[in-house]
Amino acid sequence: MLGKTANGLFWMYRYLERAENTSRLVETGQRIALTRLGSGDDDWLPVMQTAGVAEGYKATHDELTKDGAIDWMLRSKENGSSVLTSIAGARQNARMVRTALTHEVWEATNGCYMTAQEKLGRKVSERDLPSVLGMIRQRTALVRGTTHGTMLRNDMYDFARLGTFLERADNTARILDVKYYVLLPSALAVGSSIDNVQWETILRSVSAHGGFRMEYGNVYSPRDIAHFLILDKRFPRSLAFCASKLKDNLGYLASSYGKKTDACAMAEALIRRFMTHDIEAVFEFGLHEYIEEVLIALGQLGAQIEKDYRFYE
């Protein structure tokens, strides 16, 4: 398999994951705006921060408005991580690695892109927002479904998965990075409605509200939320889950290539260092410092994968 193809698969699935994550954040932002009394345009700044696109917005806009923020996150071509550019990026990479994809995966990806072009080609009105977001989510889910249902479990699949979980871990860690303060034990003003909203927002940002409720009921505690998002291996967007998938897929590559790479060792080290303690130890270490170090480790892992598997010349 070509290094270029590994690179293309890796990025195709990173972009796809990013498109999903960004659309979920838009949905969450809109929900706060609609359900929380006294909320205003300013509330969109942290939303954009969690998506990692706030700096770009500030550089290109004079004022912060809800419409501006939604448009920036959904469909701006200047924003390299908007839903539309991410889907276009996924499709561009899919074209590049067309020979590595099944017919079904390619058609689902192309169909997803066609829908995005159509629905996000012009400004989305508030009235249409829920249905457009739903449609995008369905289309990306179809790509994921065809991937699971039709792709061989070989090295190509491993690179697709590495892209998915690196992006997902990055996304969850970034949300925690922006919102860590509401999860600190010192912020324990239990029962205050403001905190409830904040916590619910965090959970929704990673589609965890349902899963969390199933596990803990309706009682939110910052400790439980932090544990769920960081260490719970059952939750598919937790850092521990993503890290163990990264380790697994690098392990599969090592066994199919008969060679264990530095990236593989790095993923194992990441788990040893960050995922084997309990949440109290994380708080003791400092939640913010912990998250920052995880983000750095993820960045290094990505760079090592690129190098070990010859993504570029």
């Binding site: 398999m1 290094g3 270029k4 090295d155 690179f159 598997y309 010349e313």
Partner: peptide, 18 residues
């Protein structure tokens, strides 16, 4: 393959794989 995936290695044209 594209040109930048290939180079001459030991007298053969070879592609850069993983």
């Amino acid at each position: 393959v594209e040109g930048h995936d290939l180079r001459v290695v030991d007298g053969r044209v070879a592609m850069r794989t993983t």
